[in-house]
Design a protein around this nucleic acid. Structure first.
Length: 565
RNA sequence: CGGGAUGUGGCUCAGCUUGGUAGAGCGCAGCGUUCGGGACGCUGAGGCCGCCGGUUCAAAUCCGGCCAUCCCGACCA
């Protein structure tokens, strides 16, 4: 592609509305332009990258035996009402009404639609089947952010598999996990696979593919020694409460005027925070939940939700407290609490003589013990793991936290959708059974941003070869006829075998070099004054900034050699 | 949705405190000189100062409302 014939509007300054490196560079290098908050145009060069990622994804999906199809972005409400998600998806769903007042949404995901298609799989003999598509998804994010990293319209590869047995699902799930690893590797990115929380999609088993980058929105907790890795949302650790298993004392009520925060209370009672127990009040659907965790730890709402078997929980608001005057904010405790399910962190089982609110203004109980003073309805791990704590899987490892960008997520869904939507096949015994399902997503557009986030320097993008918009940036600095001729020759020679961007513009060298580094193609071939003097051209490797002088005749061999390693 | 900020040529910003007929740099067009890391000179085009209303002889500037965008929190590929 001749530079003069394409359209790459590069910018000197960082755009004012971009915060993170990948967003700034995508706009500056002319890959992306904003249409509205969280809605973007992929410019010609950006689209080339997107297509390269898509093609890698497509190849690996096809290799894994998946079938490509294309479902509509525009979806009827009825399907979503069948799965109960028309309501459950809430505000995040882009909804619209047609001229006949029929309700639709722009698909945030496609479980419902694919399940309606799967109804045409009638027999166990036709299972398993796995379908995928690469298509725009719509989610009305509360806060779109970081360019294409969290946008409201984005390109996703979503795949859905249908099975008659758990073993069959396991097999496909493993296959997809391998395919995903291969995809991220082929894109040239370093990543980690972590245990994850299911979220709105649901399902028991789920793992995320995290591209490691400081700007990532997620924290990955991992153990160097055994390889344990999990999203901070689900990560567990081993840690000890101090004040464990001491001789149990009799509980006493104490006056604690205005001391409702953990810090104030610890100071006032002159005791460590570890023996204070926080009682947090949550709503889980229609019921009220009191969650008990050590004062020194942060509660993890995702874990609380999964301990209760609900999709999500939300902390009591001021209004909620007003509706429940028996629950006294700041002085809540498990003893004497009515009409609330008590969920306690596992660590409290061995903690002795701790402090809880007395459900009475300005009062706490001290020397409280489980069993003798109260019992929990549910025991579970409820707290966030912290860096430096011991690994849950092995005894010697310490947990470390790194930031990551979630580019892929695979789930085992089970029968959630198939049973609600009555999608069944007939088994060997002739009985109708709901499908067992899996689903597998890759954020294709996010992958592009993640790649830039992981690979850039102060000059611009450093593309991994597999997804670079072009392989070679041919730069002609000469302005005479001889220079132009050799540049054209080189360009024509490589046209068949390589993606070449040929900078044939009559501009000063500085502009061309700066644009080339900003665009970040892996290899630059520069025709400059050494050509006129010695018939030499220069090869520059973008990543290392190393330059090599090469005779024109040997250029082809050089590029071949570079390509091979 | 809560908290914070911003909105002025294509881009990045100044001007607003103290109201008086809109500026810079970059980019763009033309001419000339340059030509290995965003060169220089001259000339030129380009702005309902986010929108609506108010105060005033006079509003980019003061006041009110709205809209948009960005950042911090809950959501997620």
């Amino acid at each position: 592609m001749r530079y003069s014939k394409t359209f790459i509007p590069t910018l000197r300054d960082d755009p004012a509305d971009a915060e993170i490196t990948s967003h700034k560079l995508m706009v500056r290098a002319g890959l992306l332009r904003k249409a509205a908050s969280g809605v973007y145009t992929w410019m010609p060069i950006g689209l080339r990258v997107l297509r390269k990622v898509e093609n890698i994804v497509r190849e690996e999906m096809d290799n894994a035996g998946c079938l490509e199809l294309l479902m509509p972005a525009l979806q009827p409400a009825e399907l979503w009402k069948q799965s109960d998600r028309w309501f459950a998806y809430g505000e995040e769903m882009m909804r619209l009404v047609d001229r006949h007042q029929r309700e639709f949404c722009l698909g945030p995901t496609h479980e419902e639609l694919i399940t309606s298609i799967a109804k045409e799989i009638h027999s166990y003999k036709d299972l398993p089947k796995c379908f995928y598509q690469i298509q725009a998804k719509y989610r009305d994010e509360i806060r779109p952010r970081f360019g294409v990293m969290r946008s409201r319209e984005f390109i996703m590869k979503d795949a859905y598999s249908f099975h008659d047995t758990q073993e069959s699902l396991d097999e496909t799930y493993q296959l997809m996990q391998k395919a995903y690893a291969k995809i991220v590797e082929r894109c040239g990115l370093s990543y980690r696979v972590v245990k994850a929380a299911g979220g709105l999609i649901g399902g028991a088993v789920s793992e995320e593919f995290m591209v490691l980058a400081d700007a990532g929105e997620d924290v990955v907790v991992h153990c160097e020694s055994c390889g344990y890795a999990a999203n901070l949302e689900t990560a567990s650790s081993k840690w000890r409460v101090s004040g464990e298993n001491e001789e149990r004392k009799e509980r006493k009520k104490v006056h604690t005027p205005n001391k409702s925060s953990i810090n104030d209370l610890a100071q006032f009672l002159d005791i460590p925070k570890t023996v204070l127990v926080k009682t947090l009040i949550y709503k889980a659907g229609d019921s009220t939940v009191a969650a008990l965790v050590p004062g020194s730890k942060e509660i993890n709402p995702h874990k609380l939700a999964s301990a209760l078997g609900v999709g999500e929980v939300s902390l009591f608001t001021k209004e909620d407290f007003e509706k429940r005057p028996d629950i006294i904010q700041g002085f809540v405790g498990p003893i004497g609490l009515m009409n609330a399910k008590i969920v306690a962190d596992n660590s409290l089982r061995s903690l002795s003589n701790f402090v809880v609110g007395a459900n009475e203004i300005d009062h706490h109980f001290i020397d409280v013990n489980t069993e003798s003073d109260f019992s929990a309805d549910v025991w579970a791990d409820l707290v966030f793991a912290e860096e430096g704590e011991a690994c849950i899987d092995c005894d010697h490892g310490q947990l470390e936290g790194v930031r990551g960008i979630e580019v892929g997520h695979i789930f085992q869904l089970g029968k959630k959708y198939s049973s609600k939507m009555n999608a069944k096949y007939v088994d060997e015994a002739g009985r109708a059974q709901p499908f067992i399902m899996g689903c597998y997503g890759i954020g294709v557009s996010r992958m592009v941003a993640a790649a830039i986030e992981q690979r850039n320097d102060e000059r611009g993008i450093i593309w991994p070869k597999a997804i670079a918009p072009f392989d070679i940036h041919l730069i002609n600095l000469t302005k005479d006829e001889a220079g132009r001729k050799i540049a054209d020759e080189i360009y024509n020679e490589f046209l068949d075998n390589n993606d070449v961007l040929y900078d044939d513009r009559l501009l000063s060298p500085g502009i061309k070099f700066t644009d080339a580094d900003l665009l970040g193609l892996p290899v630059q071939v520069i025709i400059g004054r050494k050509f006129a003097e010695k018939k030499m051209v220069e090869i520059k490797i973008r990543e290392t900034q190393k330059r090599y002088d090469v005779e024109v005749d040997k250029l082809s061999d050089w590029l071949k050699a570079l390509d091979e390693n």
